[in-house]
Amino acid sequence: MALMASSRREAGTKSFPLVIYVVVPLLALGLQSLLSLHLTRFDLVDLPLLVTIYYAITQREPVSGTLVGALIGIAQDALTHHALGIFGISKAVIGYMAASLGVRVDTDNHGTRLLLTFSFTLAQTVILWLLQRHMLGQPVAWHGFHELLRATVNALLAVVLFALLDLTRRTEY
């Protein structure tokens, strides 16, 4: 299967300079907050989610993927008025799943990235909906077409963003 990792190069982990680990998530949070103010439909995009997915699939380490996802999610929660942990839980799960899948599939392939991001965006929406609706009892509706649109937009943006982030990494075998 073309999407599966079939060589040592494809299975090799990538690392980033430490500053990138700190700056990119903060930049994602800041841009998400700022651009949503000036671009009306920018809230369809979830830059912190894309960064979580990227780190998880390139690190291929479920523990770090979980922790990175949890931290980014809690930081995202802090910008909202919701209780801390809603995005934290969902992004921790997404980070774990992305890192687990990253071991098995070729994450350098753009098609793989597109499909993974589309799936993880939908998965996060489902997790959020379950948490808010059934755990916290908040009034949340499910808008199917809207969520498909959101997943498509994020998947397309992920292809471009991941390619840009690839420029900052160094491969380790």
């Binding site: 479920p62 523990v63 979980t66 922790l67 949890a70 809690i74 209780a83 801390l84 942990g85 809603i86 934290g88 839980i89 921790a92 799960v93 774990y96 687990s100 755990m135 916290l136």
Partner: peptide, 26 residues
Amino acid sequence: RNALVLIAVLLAQVIGLAVQVRRPDS
């Protein structure tokens, strides 16, 4: 290890959520 870390992280956040939501002046 991976699954246990995930469970621990999720559990910690769920407890945190429960504490926040349980507060009367939430």
